[in-house]
Amino acid sequence: MAEAPIIELTNIVKSFGPVSVLKGVNLRAYPGKVTALVGDNGAGKSTLIKGLAGVQPYDSGEVRFAGEAVHLHSPREASRLGIEVVYQDLALCDNLDIVQNMFLGREELGFGTFDEGLMEREAAETLRQLSVRTVSSVRQKVSSLSGGQRQTVAIARSVLKKAKVVVLDEPTAALGVAQTEQVLELVGRLAEQGVAVILISHNLADVFAVADYISVLYLGQMVASVKAEDTNRDDIVGYITGSKTYNGVQA
């Protein structure tokens, strides 16, 4: 591997009571690359991601960020390192507009007053960087946006935060064909900006369209981590369902 991974999970274990959800999982993500994380329902994808976000800390295992061991115990710690998760249910506030949602939870908002004009300019600039052309005004309430637009806002928020690692949890699950295409383009642009993208998806067409690497979780274990160009749909389906075992070198 030419480039060093920005995030490296080693031997991650997580149980809920007697239920062991992650049984020693390894995962790497590289700057400027899209790593797809696939697996059937209950394979442990969400648990793995929640640990990375600091929402549900892992029981044991090592997390290295840019080569250094780190601990992720709260969303704020993860956020400080530059790890952002775009959740499936999007975690946007419907009652706020696009600018406000993009600045949600930001430390820059001091205890005193803050500059709405500056916030508005930065939000617009970020959307422009991502070539977003689907929203008419950054002062639109999020409740009035379509699914694809909401996804765009959520992704743009992580860019605005200068995230180094962005995890996308099923970003296209609820979208139509055209909107899916737009979001996948956005995922590509995100990686072009040097961000390490971890994409969770059930849709293998989406995965093969944008992913550089594919990691497959099966019943709490990482059964394959491969370069997308070295594999194919049938193999991946085999790993996901457990009907095939990966014998090659783990990418």
Partner: peptide, 20 residues
């Protein structure tokens, strides 16, 4: 910031928690 966060919590408590 308190006011801003107040609207966020009132709008979507879970979202507010997830962004820290």
């Amino acid at each position: 910031r308190l006011g801003f966060n107040t609207y966020a919590v009132g709008g979507n408590q879970e979202a507010a928690r997830l962004v820290g």
